[in-house]
């Protein structure tokens, strides 16, 4: 790939303490050995079931949680070296997260104006009040919240779900964000307005060269919006590659399972529902766990699968899979 990545994640690991005794501490590994690149003007989709560590990855990248191990490079610099306030602020400006629930992400006591204006004020993007107003209104216009002056006066409860998500996207536009970590941005919205949000993000890719990490359960919207897809299962990336390759030629048994649940691949916005899995079948990964994370549900499990972690194997130019069925 000739493009220069803006964000490189290398072997990221994140543990959460589960049980805390006096002498012992137990951990669960929410993210294990996850690596990916984000490129300007492109989107990487992360697809996986609930609890697979999608949000945790995004939260570690956006400095909400410290990482346990691994590297996160932003424009070639490890973000662990950002310790002074100025570089943290600069990083926050460039890397923003969009949440699943746009209602929860907006403070109910403040207007739309406040939500767009604060980033501009904090990062001193505007010099005075009239400039602030102009900028807020131009942002609202860009995200399609017109008439801008009326919308600016509204509170979150006076907006529809789609409009709220547009406000959240507007914040990243106001900041001039270069990497947007979109955590299920459309899953709380009506099917009818999802496409509008996806198109808005698509336009950001093209017009502002924004890099996207697009987290979703819905492989159909991922195929529509992203260039690359990474499939995650209990904290592990099990298959990555160009969106078309992964969706039309899935190699990992888990990806195949995910795709078998999609009713019609050509129907836009169709929802997938995975075959009902009992919760106990999905393992909790611990630092000391061994074997393939998918072994408990995989139809092709061998004794080796229960003992060893399969390595990430290269199948094609940009298609990797973590399964003993393919090399290893």
């Amino acid at each position: 790939m000739s493009l220069q990545p803006i964000m490189e994640v290398r072997h990221l690991v994140k543990d959460f303490p589960t049980k805390q005794g006096i002498f012992t501490k137990q951990y669960m590994r929410a993210v294990n050995d996850v690596s990916f690149n984000l490129y300007p003007g492109r989107a990487l989709g992360i697809v996986g079931e609930s609890g697979s560590g999608k949000s945790t990855s995004a939260r570690v990248i956006s400095l909400q949680y410290p990482r346990t191990a691994g590297e996160i490079l932003f424009q070639g610099n490890d973000i662990a070296t950002f310790t002074d306030k100025a570089s943290v602020m600069a990083y926050r400006r460039k890397v923003q997260m969009i949440f699943q629930d746009p209602y929860g992400a907006l403070n109910p006591v403040h207007t739309v104006f406040h939500h767009i204006a604060r980033p501009l004020q904090i990062h001193k993007i505007v010099q005075n009040k009239s400039e602030l107003e102009d900028k807020v209104y131009s942002v609202l216009e860009k995200v399609g919240l017109i008439p801008v002056e009326q919308t600016a006066k509204k509170y979150a409860y006076q907006l529809s779900g789609g409009q709220r998500q547009r406000v959240c996207i507007g914040k990243t536009l106001a900041l001039g964000t270069e990497v947007v970590l979109a955590d299920e941005p459309t899953s709380a919205l009506d099917v009818s307005i999802r496409l509008g949000i996806l198109n808005l993000m698509e336009a950001m890719k093209e017009d502002f060269n924004t890099a996207f990490l697009y987290i979703t359960h819905d492989i159909a919207t991922a195929r529509y919006f992203t260039e690359e897809i990474a499939v995650m299962y209990v904290g592990h990336m099990v298959e990555t590659g160009d969106s078309r390759d992964v969706t039309s030629n899935p190699q990992h048994p888990y990806t195949q399972l995910l795709l078998s649940a999609v009713p019609d691949p050509h129907k836009r916005g169709s929802r997938i529902s995975l075959p009902e899995v009992e919760k106990k079948e999905i393992p909790t990964w611990r630092p000391e766990s061994r074997g393939c994370p998918f072994a408990s549900r995989c139809p092709h499990t061998t004794p080796q699968c229960r003992e060893q972690m399969p390595p990430l194997t290269k199948l094609a130019d940009n298609h990797f899979v973590r399964c003993f069925l393919h090399g290893g």
């Binding site: 400095l63 926050r92 400006r93 923003q96 997260m97 992400a105 403070n107 604060r118 904090i122 914040k171």
Partner: peptide, 10 residues
């Protein structure tokens, strides 16, 4: 999440 969002914008 609006508190997280406020932290995220600095």
């Amino acid at each position: 999440e609006f508190i997280t969002a406020a932290e995220a914008i600095g």
